[in-house]
Design a binder for these strands. Structure first.
Lengths: 335, 335
DNA sequence: TTGTACGCGTTATCAC
DNA sequence: GTGATAACGCGTACAA
């Protein structure tokens, strides 16, 4: 039995009766090859079913036209839309996107960064600013441009395209308080290694004390990301004595879980308790009651991120953090 | 200004005072290097911040420990859970997953396949069996194992891990008819290049004629994948004279759109019209009324797929198609 | 246990 | 327009 061996530039060159240099030129700068030769090469390539070897190409040219993105989760919708837009924009510029996910684990994120870098990505998209300085240094040393999305922090080491999580949640919280709520509950993703979650919690605390309420009275539950975990947290928080009149959720997915559990427990939202979300993913306008939430321009963010990273990859200097506007989306889950 | 150059095996070797071969051995088979040498090399690697060059490694070893997956969409939740499980399982085996999306376009899928192959993936996960024989031949020629998921088709060219879309939808349709429905509407993804969608539509037609109804009476609308498109289709279908008493949707996302539009139009589900879905993604149990749908074991499918592909990549022969069980999930959107 | 030397498939620099 | 040929960074016989 003879195992098949992929054909190479050399094979094509032989079959076409030209040199490897010419085939390479045909591939990269066809306009510098005569029509006659072009046809011969094309023919040979088709017959052999030749495809360039990526590894070799990278080694010889030092450029991969590949961008890597590491997102906390692909399983939930939060990043999907933004990443899709990011990829689409990149595609128009001739770049390929490699997506990896870290399961919200800094350790895994670091691994993934190293993997993608050793794979020769030309640039990297990361979510949020929370990561060890060591790995940021590593990127700097390797000369790999990295861009942060979904966050906005003046003075951060890496350039970014994102929004001010603190201000955005602050606006929502202020609106909540303006409705007269005094007993506030909050369900958040883990804040320890997640600057977005942390900023949102801090914002609520801040607005609370700003309004003369006691920030430490905030009933906060931190939990994994998911509908089920949101449901569990809701039940815990609502069954305390003197339960909150409103539960602010750190994102729409947790809020959807809360809504679901409320329904299961026979608690009516917003009559018995109000619920809010953050992100305005599709889910938010499908659940009932529809979620009052903060609209994040995911598509725009993805597109802008692609452009910025493209600039960086082409040697342009980093710009100051780019801030995108978010918008309160008032619907029916909060009264 | 001196631009940074990544350190190489050679640099490490020099700094450690050993040969490149020894450093390479340290990296790949540390047990064959003496403790003393190991320490020296380790030291040098840390000082220089060395990371192996992936391209070079691939060229020399012919193995990338990388698996590619091409899914129709990353923006919607259908594939997310399965792919996450796929990745997790792969990770435990030391493989990295590269995900690309085709936007349900066979042309783009083909491009992506070629891109991933030229990047040296060891194996490929594809969704469904619908694709040109040319590209399948290409994979065979290149000796890249490919596994199909989300579908089950005896006699198909590629091995698969999936479920029988025809049988599953047939079961649901039979149940629908048993409830007494006579006027059936259906909203489906485009069937032309999507074997899963096609099988589901055919199943409904089949059950219709099996029950003595006229299969050609099925009010069918095919549309793009999405909540909004589902909503639009629902409105079109429901505003005809003699509208259906039940609308079978090809997937949960379309069904969610239908539900949303029903709500907007003041049509009550299931009192005025029943709606069913397919997939049982999170969405299905969050919308109200909760969706009657077909539960697909996404996680299990992803995990099994990872294992099968791993076998293939390691040179084991393909197994016959693996069929996973699906399950009718009876909830509130159908009476 | 360690080192030498070659090959992997491509691009880029020169000549021609 | 085209052809030699030297890199690129690593793995691996083979030799020592």
């Amino acid at each position: 039995m003879s195992s098949y061996l992929a054909s190479t530039l050399n094979d094509v060159a032989q079959k076409a009766g030209v040199s490897t240099a010419t085939v390479s030129r045909y591939l990269n700068t066809p306009e510098r090859v005569s029509k006659r030769t072009r046809d011969k090469v094309e023919q040979a390539i088709n017959v052999l079913g030749y495809t360039p070897n990526f590894g070799a190409r990278v080694m010889a040219s030092k450029r991969t036209y590949t961008i890597g993105a590491i997102i906390p989760t692909i399983e939930n919708a939060i990043f999907a839309r933004g990443i899709q837009a990011f990829q689409d924009e990149l595609h128009t510029k001739g770049y390929t996107l490699l997506v990896a996910s870290s399961s919200y684990d800094p350790q895994i994120e670091e691994e993934q960064i190293r993997t993608l870098v050793s794979r020769g990505v030309d640039g990297l998209l990361l979510i949020g600013h929370d990561r060890s300085p060591k790995i940021v240094d590593f990127l700097e040393k390797k000369n790999i441009p990295a861009l942060v999305a979904w966050a906005h922090e003046i003075g951060a080491k890496l350039p970014s395209v994102g929004f001010d999580n603190f201000a955005a949640m602050g606006e929502l919280a202020r609106y909540v308080l303006s409705l007269g709520h005094k007993r506030i509950g909050m369900i958040s993703a883990w804040t320890k290694t997640n600057d977005r979650a942390r900023a949102r919690v801090m914002a609520v605390r801040h607005i609370l004390s700003e309004s003369g309420l006691n920030a430490s009275d905030l009933k906060l539950i931190e939990t994994d990301y998911g509908i089920e975990t949101g449901a569990v947290a809701f039940e815990q928080i609502i069954q305390r004595p003197m339960p909150p009149t409103v539960i602010i959720c750190g994102n729409d997915v947790l809020a959807a879980g809360a809504l679901k559990q409320a329904n299961t427990l026979g608690i009516e939202v917003p009559r018995d308790v109000s619920v809010t979300g953050f992100d305005d993913i599709d889910l938010a306008s499908i659940v009932s009651p529809r979620l009052t939430t903060v609209h994040v321009p995911h598509r725009d963010m993805g597109k802008r991120a692609a452009r910025e990273l493209h600039h960086l990859v082409n040697g342009n200097p980093p710009k100051p953090p780019i801030e995108l506007k978010v918008e309160l989306k008032i619907r029916n889950s909060l009264i």
